[in-house]
Design a protein around this nucleic acid. Structure first.
Lengths: 195, 195
DNA sequence: ATTTTCATTGAATATTGTTTTAATGATTAT
DNA sequence: ATAATCATTAAAACAATATTCAATGAAAAT
């Protein structure tokens, strides 16, 4: 009863995987339907049978990302600095364990910079924006004296852009060595300052 | 005698500026000739009069980048750590002073990740790759005990990807606050380690 | 066993993008 | 003042991509 349904589900997954891989490499706007057809070995028509359009395939991936663990690095933490350490660890660990999720993480970041997505998607991405959310945590850490002085937005960007850039490198190039999460924390930590 | 030549040179510059701005926002492959025509207010035909094709316009920009100051952050330095500090300062200072060059910096980094460029361009970009060049400097700093222990490649990537990602943010979004260069140096510095 | 469903394809069509071209008129050179 | 040059445009030709469609056959339902 399910030989067909299984096949169908497998193809869906194959298309999603191939699409994700190409989207993060070429960028959404530069991805051709034919790239995906070649990568999956399917005909172009079949792709349209499964997903109505490239845009819908892309949105489906973003929705998977939004619903999955990618967006949720909100562990228990002792103090603001500990939050950033645990978040970094969590993200790199998940990249090691699951390459698909690593790629999804990159897709989400790229999507955030893409101005012409559907409004509903843009709104949802906005809500999940870790950088904005981190700013007050940075300020809190500065009050406690455990996070260095400086513009909180600039500190949040320094930390998260580092993570995102390194994750992009890893997603595109899985054999690259990983950084130690605590290196990145030293970006934020108070006590090394010369001024 | 020069009314026309001046106009011509100005248009060339306008096209280069507009092209650069769009390339770094959309990515080279996703940039349409029409995007550039709209941004400059010129007809599409005129663009072809100045540059033979989109590819040639792109290559021209990369060549400007290769010949300009963008690639040359090789100041005098006291020790490896000092090199990275001066390089970071240099890059952010030049971004503050000259937005075009900041955008060019981003274009060069994006180009390095683009697999289908002409071979001559790829070769030149390869030679200018700071990350590869930094690795031995990192190792030297590790011997001296001023750079933290750890995989030198991973350290070089942590530093340079942070710079590049932040520069991309600045180029796309000029009103964002700048980081302090010494924050990024703490990624590399020995002496904060807990292990 | 027959009918229905539906995954799959390749080709047709529609859309979008690139490049070339011929015509125009304003500047420059004579 | 006349001729030559050449920046400029709009439209034509060409090329690549996206999307739809009708036909096929193999699995599923009856």
């Amino acid at each position: 009863m399910t030989a067909r349904k299984e096949q169908k589900e497998k193809r869906r997954q194959d298309i999603l995987k191939a699409g994700l891989s190409i989207f993060i490499r070429k960028g959404y706007e530069a991805t051709k339907i034919n790239d995906i057809a070649e990568k999956t070995g399917m005909s172009v028509g079949l792709l349209y049978h499964y997903f109505g359009s490239i845009q819908l395939l892309h949105e489906e991936l973003i929705n998977i990302g939004l619903s999955g663990r990618t967006g949720q690095y909100f562990p228990q933490y002792d103090d603001p600095l500990d939050y950033f350490l645990k978040a970094a660890k969590h993200i790199f660990d998940m990249a090691k364990a699951d390459h698909f999720t690593a790629e999804l993480f990159v897709l989400m970041n790229q999507a955030q910079r893409n101005p012409n997505l559907s409004n509903s998607i843009k709104g949802k991405l906005e809500q999940n924006n870790v950088i904005v959310k981190s700013i007050e945590l940075i300020e809190e850490g500065q009050c406690q004296g455990i996070i260095r002085k400086g513009n909180p937005m600039a500190l949040a960007l320094s930390f998260w852009l580092s993570i995102q850039a390194y994750m992009e490198m890893i997603a595109l190039n899985p054999d690259v060595p990983y950084p130690e999460p605590h290196w990145l924390i030293d970006l934020l930590k108070a006590g090394n300052d010369q001024n």
